[in-house]
Design a protein around this nucleic acid. Structure first.
Length: 579
RNA sequence: CGGGGUGUAGCGCAGAUGGUAGCGCGCUUGGUUCGGGACCAAGAGGUCCAGGGUUCAAGUCCCUGCACCCCGACCA
């Protein structure tokens, strides 16, 4: 491809609203342009990278016997009503009507449609297991799109769904896909880590996220270097401390705390530490009010609470609920004398002579004690793990990292097949619901994550398997015929070797070409300049290295084509794949 | 949804006290240059986000709306 005729609008200055490094570089290198908040156009160069990622995923999915399909983006409400997700999914689901006023949504994921397909077409255990996947545009009306294509409202995703006769078979497939995912992200040249994860709106009972490690990541991972346990902080188990305070119980007392309601302020006013405070939070779980207690220095983990209560929808209670139940505002609520279902975090039970709101304006209670003054309905792990917490398996201090979620696998079980009455006949002739798994990869997000991980001050440094082109050839002076002829010959020879080559045939100064070549991040650069050409040489440089090598003109093609991917391919353990 | 901010040339921005719409980059043409974003000259390019109002006169002042960005709440 000749650069002079290729749409690569590189930018010296960057658009003001680009908020992360990868977004800035994607705009500057001419990979994408923004149309509206969270909506992007992929230009030729960007699309080439996207297609590279797609092909790697396709190969690995096929390797574990996945079958590619293509499902509609516009999906009828009736299917979403069957699983209840038309209600549960919330505002993120883009809803619209057709000309006949029938409700539809734009697919944020495709469990309903695929389950509908399989329930109509698959009858027997003999046809299982089945792994179907697709690539396609997904829509999620994010509250706040940001970070370029990383959190866009419309994005490109690979989603896969598997159907099984039983849990054991799902377990085998889950393992296969898990390994396929490891290969995919390795081939993409990413430093990543699979972690245990929350299941969120997709549901199911077991799930992993694949996190690309990057400081700009939105997710936080807690990991233990001793036993290898790693989980999203949304999921990570907290170890109950069991260092019950030694103090004797003192008499409960009401104290004045005018205009003081945050944990920090109350603790300062009463001269107690935050871990003596009991935070009292009101929630509504499937329309039933629930009170959650966590220690003042801890944070409630809503996902844990929701899972514990087995609630479809969980949200913070409104001020009215506080008034009705506690008779006061949020900051003055407390568990003593409260007539409600109370769930307490394990750590709360160890607090002796604690402090909480008195359920009266401007009043708190001191010296409150579990058992004597209030009685939670149940204890559970409902807090977020935090800095300093210990691994529940081996009591070693957790490490925390930032990550970008690029893949997510779920063991769904029968959540969707039961709701949609999707089943098959067993060898005994019994109708049984499919056991399902689902597996997603954010294809467009991988592109951004790769840049986030691989760049320098001059631009992108593509991992070789993702690079839009393998080589860029720079004739430094296009008006010099000998130089141009040589450059074009190298260009054609490289192409003949099957490499993707970009020829910078623009009539501009050398500096501009060097700057753009660095910005674009093409792995190999061949420079044809007059001085070196006079002695029959061209310059060869890897984008990832600062070394420049002079190579005989007629050796260039051989050098590049033989070096491509050398030492950069990952070893694949064929035995790990279950056929 | 709450708080804050911004909308002026393709991009980045400037346009006190209302009075002929500007700069840098990019683009076009010509010339000189030519190994890390050259220089000179001449050009093209604007419903100043939209609608309403005040005024002899609005990019500028006043309403209303929209879009976008940031922080928070929320969320595979």
């Amino acid at each position: 491809m000749k650069l002079s005729k290729y749409l690569i609008p590189t930018l010296k200055e960057l658009p003001a609203d680009a908020d992360t490094l990868s977004a800035r570089l994607m705009l500057r290198a001419g990979l994408i342009r923004k149309v509206a908040a969270g909506l992007y156009e992929w230009l030729p160069l960007g699309l080439r990278v996207l297609k590279k990622v797609e092909q790697i995923i396709r190969e690995e999915m096929d390797r574990v016997n996945g079958q590619e399909v293509w499902l509609p983006v516009l999906q009828p409400r009736e299917l979403w009503d069957e699983t209840g997700r038309w209600q549960v999914y919330g505002k993120e689901l883009v809803r619209l009507k057709d000309r006949k006023d029938t409700d539809f949504c734009l697919a944020p994921t495709a469990e309903e449609v695929i389950t509908d397909l399989v329930r109509r077409e698959v009858r027997s255990y003999r046809e299982l297991p089945l792994l179907l996947y697709q690539f396609g545009t997904k829509f999620r009306d994010e509250i706040r799109p940001r970070f370029g294509v990383m959190r866009a409202r419309e994005f490109y995703m690979k989603d896969a769904y598997s159907f099984h006769a039983d849990e054991a078979d799902l377990g085998r497939m889950y393992q296969d896909v898990f390994e396929a995912y490891n290969r995919i992200f390795s081939r993409c040249g990413l430093a990543f880590r699979p972690v245990e994860a929350e299941t969120g709106a997709i549901g199911g009972n077991f799930s992993h996220e694949f996190m690309v490690l990057a400081d700009t990541g939105e997710e936080t991972i807690a990991s233990c270097e001793v036993c290898g346990y790693a989980a999203n902080v949304e999921r990570a188990e907290a170890l109950p401390p069991h260092v019950k305070d030694e103090d004797d119980m003192a008499d409960i007392e009401e104290v004045d705390t005018p205009d003081t309601w945050t944990v920090e302020d109350v603790a300062r006013l009463l001269k107690v530490s935050a871990d003596k405070m009991i935070k009292t939070l009101f929630y509504v779980a499937d329309e039933k009010p629930v009170v959650a207690l966590v220690r003042g220095d801890h944070e409630l983990n809503e996902a844990k609470l929701q899972r514990l209560l087995d609630a479809k929808i969980l949200h913070k209670a409104s001020d009215e609920v506080y008034q009705q139940t506690a008779g006061c505002d949020v900051g003055y609520a407390g568990p003593v004398g409260l007539n409600a279902v109370i769930v307490a975090d394990h750590a709360v039970s160890d607090v002796v002579n604690g402090v909480s709101g008195a359920n009266k304006k401007d009043k708190h209670l001191i010296n409150i004690n579990v058992g004597r003054d209030y009685k939670p309905s149940r204890y559970a792990d409902i807090r977020k793990v935090q800095e300093g917490d210990l691994c529940p398996r081996c009591q070693k201090t957790f490490l925390f990292h930032k990550g970008i979620e690029v893949g997510h696998t779920f063991m769904l079980g029968t959540k969707y097949s039961q709701a949609m009455r999707a089943g098959f006949l067993t060898d005994k002739g019994e109708k049984t619901p499919f056991v399902m798994g689902c597996y997603g990869i954010g294809v467009s997000r991988i592109v951004a994550a790769a840049i986030e991980q691989c760049h320098d001050g001059n631009g992108i440094i593509w991992p070789e398997h993702l690079a839009p082109f393998d080589v860029i050839v720079l004739p430094l002076n296009v008006s010099e015929p000998a130089l141009m002829t040589t450059a074009e010959k190298i260009y054609h020879d490289l192409k003949a070797k099957g490499l993707a080559v970009l020829l910078d045939d623009r009539d501009c100064r050398a500096g501009v070409k060097f700057k753009d070549a660095d910005l674009l991040g093409i792995p190999w650069r061949v420079t044809v300049g007059e001085k070196k050409l006079a002695v029959g040489k061209a310059e060869l440089k890897k984008r990832s290295s600062s070394e420049i090598e002079d190579v005989d003109i007629d050796q260039v093609t051989e050098r590049v084509s033989s070096a491509k991917f050398l030492g950069n391919d990952i070893s694949i353990d064929e035995n790990a794949i279950i056929k």
